[in-house]
Amino acid sequence: MHEVALTVNGTNMRIEVEPRMTLADALRDRCDLTGTHLACEHGVCGSCTISVDGRAVRSCLMFAVQADGADVMTIEGLANGEELHPVQKAFQAEHGLQCGFCTPGFVMSVTKFLETTPDPTDDQIRDGISGNLCRCTGYQGIVRAVKRAAAELNGQS
């Protein structure tokens, strides 16, 4: 077993993991943060997307031992208390989800995407979400949600 010290949503944590445990599993089973969802478990679907040291990554394609010293943010860390993050609000307002299983991954991907592309074109939005799969919505609501979130974030700044 390896001891891993990392920051998750601003809280310092120490967890014990086998080397083969992915960061996604460690977040769910060691940190009790089950908002990060696992679907394909081999890097195709994007459901497990989180932020590691400020970058969006697939947490199923990283072992927890690799995250020693890392600053991790999951979907649980996005809202400000009871106040949802603008991306979360936009997904709700634009019906950017149906079953909701892929939503944490989408929200994390979109949040990071809008940090580097604050005023995206339609093509850039579709490219930005191409690493996440949704089987319910047909993506129209998600694209609208990204536009709404971008507008709100730009209005804030």
């Binding site: 890097g43 994007g46 997307t49 970058r55 969006a56 990554v57 697939r58 394609l61 990283m62 991907s109 995407f113 930005g128 191409s130 690493g131």
Partner: peptide, 9 residues
């Protein structure tokens, strides 16, 4: 190469 989340790692 892959999606941007892949290129981040």
């Amino acid at each position: 190469v892959g999606h941007y989340q892949i290129r981040n790692q």
